[in-house]
């Protein structure tokens, strides 16, 4: 390269008038840079979507859980009431109630493993061995099955057909 030409070319380059960007572009870019967004819109949208999903999921879960819990507790209460009114005898149903299930051991199986039952359930056994005896299931609230009185021993009721 001719060393005398090099500075000449660079000098000429520096003297060239360049095409300038329009004022419109300047204004747009400066406007953009002056408005400082808190978040990139895409990121903001993604974060918002995440929270919305989480909130909806939590809300639906809470509603479903509450509904299920209410139904279970209602059915337990109904079951307990039935058991509470359970009166059986070795000869079959007593007190004129004739639903055919009274006296079966399976009818009181609801008591197994339930921790918050009504404390007393009475069972009257009529047999010919002696006066009618009332058996009571003592089951305190909050006690586990193992800690309660042995249900099977206390409430074994002969099947009506036996």
């Amino acid at each position: 390269m001719n060393p005398q030409k090099k500075p000449q070319v660079e000098k000429l380059l520096s003297q060239m008038a360049l095409q300038e960007p329009s004022e419109q572009l300047d204004n747009k870019v400066l406007e953009m840079t002056c408005q400082q967004p808190l978040l990139n819109p895409k990121v903001g949208m993604a974060i918002g979507f995440g929270w919305l999903s989480l909130t909806l999921t939590a809300l639906i879960s809470a509603l479903v859980g509450t509904g299920l819990g209410w139904r279970i507790s209602a059915s337990l209460a109904t079951g307990s009431a039935d058991v509470n009114s359970f009166v059986g005898s070795s000869d079959g149903p007593v007190d004129g109630r004739n639903d055919g299930l009274l006296g079966r051991e399976s009818d009181i199986s609801l008591l197994y493993g339930q921790e918050s039952q009504i404390s007393d359930e009475g069972f009257v056994l009529h047999d010919e061995m002696g006066p009618a005896r009332i058996y009571r299931l003592q089951k305190s609230r909050g006690l586990r099955r193992k800690q309660s009185l042995p249900i099977r021993e206390t409430a074994v009721i002969p099947m009506p057909e036996i």
Partner: peptide
């Protein structure tokens, strides 16, 4: 389209 828009005389 040229980069340049003329010449600035020194």
């Amino acid at each position: 389209e040229s980069l340049f828009n003329g010449f600035i005389p020194s």
